[in-house]
Every structure is written in structure tokens, then in C-alpha cells.
Design a protein around this nucleic acid. Structure first.
Lengths: 330, 330
DNA sequence: CTGAAAGCGCTTACAG
DNA sequence: CTGAAAGCGCTTACAG
């Protein structure tokens, strides 16, 4: 209950609190003998500096804010996994902020800023261009290093870690075309947002180059809903290829297709554009554009640590390599 | 950059900083006229109190710590979803702490305590009895309200939110037995931990009651590894029922079984004990013990808010109702 | 209802 | 190398 403070340590070690502070923060500046003495007391008393007081005095909280829309999504949580691991390595704490249901984004950002985080990781991929510009002006105004994780936008001035979704989707679409498929659909979400826009762009490019008509089918991420959509869909559509912005939607589609008597990959090729944990649990396993989700998180966090430490960073706009992982569905 | 402080507001509103503070914390104690005046300035300046300074002065951070082992697991992230939603409602911030790879648990807890969180949610389900006792003594010593989320242990003094895994697993096992199955396996993990122990207990109880031999097969949560295990398994085991502590393991098993020519549910009944998002993406959909994951998180967080507010709580040991959701696999 | 002042537990120039 | 002192931006009794 009675938490030991720096005063207790100073008293027990018969030194000033300044010395205790130095032992913790700049050990090289203190005489080895007294350093040992203090260290011994610290251990005996189980002393841990109060992070809040330290944060106020030093104006550094060694805490970063991770802003995102939905924690429960597989893609998000895997990115978070990468962030957590690297943050731990560099001794940063993580505060998470969910923007779901927020009416006023500007207000949300102000909240994050008020929490005095040393840096921000923005993995809300569901923002539209103008919203994200709000983000930019807020963090620049507050002077807080910020990295966009798996988001970006036109003329983006902020550091980001991305995948070349246009190229990746282009490649996977082309692969289907080369296998002689003509009626290839892209399954996207009803709601528009940045990464999906890029995927759509890559898909359209490949289709148009091959003189095929691009067909985008928009559905929900909710499996119950998209299952209905797909069941309906099969009544009046021919299809021999399906690419989905989200793995879960692709798998849901496969299930409906197989139930409708189609064979995968024989009748319909299917591909996902994420490579989440779902991909190796479906039957057949889902061929995916491998977007290294964990790495996106990890690299973002690493970049952020450099920015917070004011280190020289030669590349603020990182595009991680992608590849296609062939499994059973394509 | 130049963050507005309470002094700026006080200056602009021509009142003392104490008054500004009151407007923010005890508005009823200040004259409506001056209150409006201050509020106006606050809005104009876009003032937000520095959460760290406030935390130091008031000794309350309105931040809770969520301690867990693996963020990326579907079960964990869905619990986190419930926590995040309720925390937001009550204006609490969330700091996450991962214990993966931690050698010294005691040390990890001290770190959380040093961060001055107002409350702790412990959703690390992978702890063994003695480890969790370390947790108990640490948080009691620090006087921090703590709720165990989906964990507990014998003679547990801490508040918790749980599911009756023994009973739930017992029921689902019995259901298989009633359908005439005899060679029912429980798939558990190599590593022992609390919730799985409970599940094993319920399974064993049902099997023994029916004079059937309990058979626990331990494998890895890694799909690549357990796929190998299962493939091997089919060479020399008869099986007509499979219950898995984790949904993903159940699905992985189904895939191997079907590949081996078995029919589900005709030849083998399969059930999961979680009901994660995976369950409705498998083919057939996975019949599950429905452990309301999101709710476990949400209810834990709600309970914690009460404890932090020192409210009267009549029930510190909450057991959420479970049910069996029948889908295609059983 | 309002203000002056002490204090939260640290860090960090500044002297010595 | 070490200590005394100011200050980080708030909250909260205490007077008035």
C-alpha cells in the first residue's frame, strides 16, 4: 500500500534524491561506490519510480498511443502483436484508443494528445482522406511523432508503413486472368476506405489491361450478412474468380460457393488480400496476397522509436515487400 | 506545439487556476456566470488538461492496465473488444501489458503497478496456480483493484468473471455420448493452464460417468504443427468425437479428418469450447460451447469501474451463463 | 463562490 | 561526483 518513493530510497541510502534519480537515469554520472549503495537499497525496498511523476517532470511518458477502430479484427490484432513486441523491447508502454462510434475525430485526437503520449501509431484504416488530414494537422500542431500504420493517402506528409496494395492486387488478379478466368469479381466492403480503394485500383488496372470488365461486389464484413448476399448472388451471376479485400469474406464466399455446388479451385479461383490466421484454417486453404501484418506493426513501432529518439531516419515512407502465397484456392 | 495549460485558461478568463480546475472537476461548486466564462475560454483555446499532471496531483490516472499474454489470439482480442467499449463509456484509458516472454512475473506486475494504473484486468489465462498467487499478493500490497478476466484458481480471493467451463464441457461431452459416441477425444494444449484444466475436468467427469475412457490429446496451437499431429493421429486412432479447448484447433482437426476421408458430423462429431469468429467460417460451421467472450471482457471492465469507484458490489465472483450453439459439426 | 498555497513524486540545470 | 532548489501542470484542503 505504502508505495516507496524516491525519498524513501534517498533516506535509506543516505544520499539526496537527486542522486537516486541519477542512478536511475544517468548511472554513469555517479560514483560507482554510491551507485552500488543506492542500487542495493532500491532492490531491498523494491522501489520503482512512479511513472506519472516521472512523466510530468521529464515531459516524456515513454508511452505511445495506438489509435484504431476495431481491436477484434484479426488483421488489427496481428498488427498490434507486432507493435506490442517491439514496444516492449524499447521499454515503451502502450495505450490503446478506439475510435469506433466517435462522432468527432478531431476531438478523439485531442484526447490522445492530452494523454501526453510520446508518439502515436495510427492504424485506423477506415478513414477517408479529409478525416486523415485532420489527424495530420492535429499531431503536427502538438508536435507528436506519428506513424501511419497500414494507412496513407495522397500527398501524405506523415511517415508511414505500407504495402503496395495496388501492385499486389494487380499481380494476383493477373494470375487469375492468366489461368484463363474472365468473370473475376472483387469483393470489397460497402464502406469506402483507403486500403480498399488501393486494392480496387490494382484490380481494375489488371482487368482493364486484359479487356475484361471489372466487377466490384460490395458486401458486409459480418459473416451472417455476407453469407446471405453471396447466396443471393449465386442465383444470377456467373463467376470464375473471386478476390476479396478481407480473408474472412473470401472464406465465407467459398463456403457458400461450395454449398452451391461449385468446386474450388476447379470452377472458381479464390484469393484473399490479407493472409490472416484464417487463411490456413479454411478448406481449401486460402491463397493470399501476403501482407505481412505482424511486420507492418513491428516496423511501424520501430520507426516510431527512432522518431521519438530524434534519430536520423533516411526513409520515412516504408513499403514492405509483398508476395503471393499459393495455397489450395488459386 | 505550445500546449495550452490551465494557467493560460486562467489568465484569459481572468480567474485563478483553482477556479478553472473546479470548472473541470466540480462544476457545481462554481458560479454559473464564471463557469460559462471559463468554459468559453476553454473551448476557444481548445484546452485539455494534461492527463499526467492531473494524474500526479489527484493520484488517479483514470487508466487501467490490461495484462495478457498474447494479443493476437482471437479469444483475447474479442475480450479486449468488450473491455475497450466499456472503458470508453466510463472514460477510462487502457494500457496494455504483454507478459509473453517474461521471465519474472513478479517483476512484470511491479511494472504495471509503477505505471500508476487505477485498476488492473488480468486476462492472462495461461498462468499456473502459484504464479497467480504472486499476482494476488502484489496487487493487494499495492492496493489496486483487480479483476481476473477469464481466469481464477482455487480459493481465489480476487474478483473474477468466469464461465463454468467444467459444467459447459461436461454438457457438450454428454451430448456426444448421448448420440452414441464412444471414442471421444479432448484436444488440449501441451502447456497446462487454468481454463483448460477446468475443461479437462468437465470432459473427464462426463466420460467417467458413462464408463468411457477419457482420452486427452495434447497438441500445439500452431496450425502447421497440429496439422501434422492430427495427420499422424489418424494412422492409428479410432475416433468418433472430438472436443477442442480452442476453436482453431477443432477446425484444423476437421480439415485433416475430412482429408482423411471422414465425414463430419456423420463419422465424427466435433465441437469447440470457445465460439470465436472462426466458428462460423469453417465448413461445416463449428458447434460450440458459447463462452461469451466479448461479454467476459465487458463485464470485467464494468465490475472494475465499480471497484475503482468504491461502490458496493454484491457479487465479486461472476459466472456468466454459457450455452451450446448447435451448428453443423455436432 | 473564489483565490493563495501546498503538494503530488519525480527531473534537471546550477552550484559547489 | 553530489546536493539544494525550482519546476513539470495539475488538485485540493484551507481561508476568506
Amino acid at each position: 500500500m505504502a508505495n516507496t518513493t524516491i525519498y524513501d530510497v534517498a533516506g535509506a541510502a543516505k544520499v539526496s534524491l537527486a542522486t537516486v534519480s541519477r542512478v536511475m537515469n544517468n548511472p554513469e554520472k555517479v560514483n560507482p561506490a554510491t551507485r552500488e549503495k543506492v542500487l542495493k537499497v532500491i532492490k531491498e525496498l523494491g522501489y520503482r519510480p512512479n511513472a506519472i511523476a516521472r512523466g510530468l517532470a521529464s515531459r516524456k511518458t515513454t508511452t505511445i498511443g495506438v489509435v484504431m477502430s476495431d481491436v477484434t479484427r484479426a488483421y488489427t490484432s496481428q498488427m498490434l502483436g507486432g507493435i506490442v513486441d517491439i514496444a516492449k523491447k524499447y521499454n515503451y508502454s502502450i495505450k490503446i484508443f478506439s475510435t469506433t462510434g466517435d462522432v468527432n475525430l478531431d476531438d478523439s485526437i485531442r484526447t490522445v494528445v492530452a494523454e501526453q503520449v510520446d508518439g502515436i501509431l495510427f492504424l485506423n484504416e477506415e478513414l477517408e482522406q479529409e478525416q486523415i488530414e485532420t489527424v495530420v494537422s492535429r499531431v503536427e500542431e502538438a508536435g507528436i511523432p506519428t506513424v501511419l500504420t497500414n494507412v496513407s493517402f495522397e500527398n501524405n506528409p506523415l511517415p508511414y508503413v505500407m504495402i503496395d496494395y495496388v501492385e499486389g492486387t494487380y499481380e494476383i488478379t493477373k494470375k487469375m486472368i492468366e489461368k484463363g478466368k474472365k468473370d473475376i469479381y472483387l469483393f470489397s466492403t460497402v464502406r469506402h476506405y483507403y486500403t480498399n480503394d488501393l486494392k480496387e485500383k490494382g484490380y481494375i488496372k489488371a482487368m482493364e489491361e486484359a479487356n475484361l470488365e471489372p466487377r466490384i461486389f460490395r458486401t458486409s464484413g459480418d459473416v451472417t450478412i455476407n453469407t446471405q448476399h453471396f447466396t443471393e448472388f449465386f442465383r444470377n451471376h456467373n463467376i470464375d474468380g473471386a478476390i476479396s479485400v478481407r480473408d474472412s469474406i473470401a472464406i465465407s464466399f467459398m463456403n457458400v460457393a461450395i454449398k452451391a455446388g461449385r468446386k474450388i479451385p476447379e470452377d472458381i479461383l479464390v484469393a484473399g488480400l490479407q493472409n490472416t490466421k484464417y487463411a490456413i484454417l479454411s478448406r481449401p486453404n486460402l491463397t493470399c496476397l501476403d501482407t505481412p501484418v505482424y511486420d507492418i506493426g513491428a516496423v511501424s513501432m520501430r520507426l516510431l522509436t527512432k522518431l521519438m529518439a530524434q534519430e536520423e531516419v533516411d526513409n520515412l515512407h516504408i513499403v514492405l515487400p509483398h508476395k503471393i502465397i499459393e495455397r489450395g484456392s488459386l
